[in-house]
Simulated scan of single mutants.
Amino acid sequence: MRKLYVIGIGAGDPDQVTMQAVKAMRKAEAFFVIGKGTEKQELVDVRTTILAEHVDTPHRIIEITDPPRERTPADYAGVVVDWHERRSELLEAAFDQVDGIGAILVWGDPALYDSTLRMVEHVLARGRADFGYEVIPGVTSIAALAARHRMVLHR
């Protein structure tokens, strides 16, 4: 069975990527990167920097162009549902190019403020792709900032 890792990379600092994330990255043969155009190319560049620093195994990067969506629609929820569906179709098509293990590098932690897990569930719900997936948590910006400023987050 094919496998997908959804890997949290924190705020983009290669030194804050967890060892669990590094181990998962080293198992992947392909990384899916959803590009958001030239104005956000830096987001792709940081991911490739993280891969260059931590992955010493052969791999390839499969870029997926993020489908456009209206940013201030009257029906925001409907537009987002449609956008997630179109993104999941693109991920499914890209995953067809991988026979073994693929991975997606997600900002922060995949369980917080991100739609990647919903996208993966959409792919599986359609039933055309068969794979297992594992979520690797990332260092959140809150944890990184609290550590940087030597703050305790509780009383």
Rank of each mutant, 00 (worst) to 15 (best):
Y5G: 03
V6Y: 00
I7E: 02
I9Y: 01
A11Q: 11
G12S: 08
P14I: 11
V17H: 02
V17E: 01
V17A: 03
Q20D: 12
M25E: 05
R26E: 07
A28P: 05
A28F: 08
A30Y: 02
A30R: 02
F31W: 10
F31T: 09
G37M: 12
E39F: 13
K40V: 02
T49D: 14
T49C: 06
T49L: 15
I50K: 04
L51Y: 05
H54D: 08
V55S: 07
T57S: 12
P58H: 07
P58T: 14
I64G: 07
I64M: 05
T65A: 13
T65K: 12
P67C: 03
R71S: 06
T72F: 10
A77R: 08
A77Q: 08
V79K: 01
D82N: 14
W83Y: 15
W83C: 04
E85R: 11
E85P: 00
E85K: 10
S88E: 03
S88H: 05
S88R: 01
S88A: 15
F95T: 00
L105H: 07
V106R: 08
D109N: 15
P110I: 12
L112E: 07
Y113A: 13
S115A: 12
T116H: 06
E121C: 04
E121F: 02
H122I: 09
H122K: 13
H122R: 13
H122P: 03
R126D: 10
R126T: 08
G127D: 06
F131W: 08
G132F: 03
E134Y: 02
V135Q: 00
I136M: 00
P137I: 05
G138N: 11
S141D: 06
S141R: 14
L145A: 15
R150V: 09
